[in-house]
Design a protein around this nucleic acid. Structure first.
Lengths: 350, 350
DNA sequence: TTGTACGCGTTATCAT
DNA sequence: ATGATAACGCGTACAA
């Protein structure tokens, strides 16, 4: 291989201008789809040719510095290994990319300190906006973004209604989903139904808990309500711990969980306790993550529209980037999927 | 809310300089950890205070333009919803972030045209380097990156040995992993073992197929080798189709697959065909994705070191970004995990 | 130790 | 329709 190491500097707009025999600003205009019709066809093609010949590619950095826009959007997730997020992130990336934006990905590991740091870094990078999937409690991220004048969109999360400033968001109909799960269990004949909830402080946990209570009430089971325990995180391990707590706390024949991962943790705990699903206890999940139809037993759960959520979130962001007002709070329908983890309660020993 | 809309421009280094009563370059030095000891302690603290008071944050855009470095690294994955990638990406992001780098995420959807486009875009954004997890066949991404003088690292993928230019990479010991799976099956007494392989053209598929053949040979089963079918993608659907093909092709009592998702597809096909695992056919997977211990039956598979792969890939990239020579091709050990999807072959009907 | 001067590559604005 | 000029915010030789 020859001595290509000295890194021949990439061609600049000035090089193209020289090659095409025009001024740099003309090149800029010729290459900008929005201003190209202000240029003679002849010059436009001449510029395009020169650019292609030199292998010219505009520097987004320089353009960003000058224009104040970086065509970059930050996406913050609490935990990429939680199967809820990849489909959402993928859909966001797809939509944003189609609109010419690049996605900056950041993980917070559920740590709100790290979250703040990450927002700082995104701001420093000149991100044009931030999509927050992160659900850290007491999160200051929204405020931080606003102080930096970066548009924000929330996905799989919303601000408590009434909180200052309306931030567009897209969430699943969490309450309705959990209500449907409880209705299903009640319909099966369960009287004592417990709830394995999400981490306190997250909007999803709050809404799902609310849906749980609504379902119980609608079924007329209010007095016989089962144990309610909130897990420390949306993880399998936390689900196991919480389920063990439920088993200690009180009797129930069914548990509606706030998340499939939590449900898997519940499976773990029940197996360890020598209990069977749905023989001894029925379990429902939330999200319908991949593979939930193949676990043993297949999980009855609430399916949410992962891809649609990402797509809508991206659309909400693009709206703002186009200078339009913030946009609405979307709530996407969730649908109960009945599988093998729920069954009528076992009759008491005769 | 008051009239804060006019977006007060964020403070620049000049503002800080004025506030601290020094020159801008002094501020630059005071804030640069690498040059800070060339500054008097008094001035340094005065500058730091002024910066904090004004809420100053350096513009990475401007710094990047000036220095030619953006402190940004692109990560390209073929499919974020494939559970192999999130842990890898997360580990990369974590390591890079700790080193002060921001991660640019891009999806290719396995499309090598899109891959090229994505590399272009990353180059335009001034990415300092690219980590490629994408495995599109006939990929030009590596060449493209090199032509843009961006350091490259391959993860979960390698270049065919002997291909021009040595690109550092980190992969699992694919061949050894599959060999171990076959050895396990042979040890159970299987004589006709099939292979459900990955998409042709991917290094992982090639290496795993090689491992399969090595395992067969080592077990002295060369003549009785079962059907070998390569799936069109690393997906559950493609796995199902390929398994159906295997069932049509020839008899076997066990199938070693190249991927857990493919194994799940095989489960689907077998279930549809009225066959049981491991009763009628034993199945092994590859990767040990989350939940593989909870599917029915729990999958015997080869565990790879997801997080370590991401971490090593990031380290390899940071090496290059620090100006060091490219670095080695790493191969991380893979370990067989025996669960319930494998058993001795059923004895022929007497 | 600190200040001066310039340029990174682009685009917005004004002039022609 | 095109050219000239300035400025975006910062880092870095070089001078003091």
């Amino acid at each position: 291989m020859d001595q290509t190491d000295p890194a021949p500097p990439r061609p600049t707009i000035a090089d193209v201008a020289r090659a095409a025999g025009v001024h740099a600003s003309t090149v800029s205009r010729a290459l900008d789809p929005a201003a190209r019709h202000r240029i003679s066809e002849a010059v436009a093609t001449r510029v395009a040719e020169a650019a292609a010949r030199l292998g010219y590619h505009p520097s987004a950095l320089a353009a960003g510095l000058r224009s104040g826009k970086s065509r970059t959007v930050g996406v913050i997730v609490p935990d990429l290994t939680n199967p809820v997020f990849p489909p959402i992130v993928e859909a966001i990336e797809r939509s944003l990319s189609a609109a010419g934006y690049v996605t900056l990905l950041a993980n917070t590991a559920g740590d709100s300190e790290r979250e703040a740091l990450v927002v700082e870094r995104l701001a420093a990078q000149g991100a044009d906006g931030v999509i927050l999937a992160s659900a850290a409690r007491g999160s200051t991220a929204v405020a931080l973004c606003r102080s930096r004048h970066m548009p924000v969109v929330l996905v799989n999360r919303r601000l408590p209604p009434g909180e200052k400033g309306d931030v567009p968001s897209v969430v699943s109909d969490d309450a309705e989903g959990l209500r449907a799960a409880v209705a299903h269990l009640a319909g099966l004949g369960h009287h004592r139904i417990g709830h394995l909830g999400g981490p306190p402080g997250t909007a999803t946990a709050t809404d799902r808990l609310r849906g749980f209570r609504a379902g119980i009430k609608a079924a007329g089971l209010a007095e016989a309500i089962g144990p309610i325990v909130q897990a420390e995180a949306y993880s399998r391990a936390a689900g196991k711990t919480a389920m063990q707590e439920i088993l200690r706390t009180g009797p129930c024949t069914a548990v509606a969980t706030a998340n499939d991962l939590l449900a898997m943790g519940a499976y773990d705990a029940l197996e360890e306790a020598g209990l069977t699903v749905p023989g001894d206890i029925s379990i429902t999940g939330f999200n319908d993550m991949p593979l939930m139809d193949r676990v043993a037993p297949p999980l009855t759960t609430v399916r949410i529209q992962h891809a649609a959520m990402g797509q809508e979130a991206a659309a909400l962001m693009l709206r703002q980037l186009a200078g339009l007002p913030p946009g609405p709070n979307l709530r996407l329908a969730a649908e109960l999927v009945v599988r093998g983890s729920t069954a009528p309660p076992r009759l008491r020993a005769t």
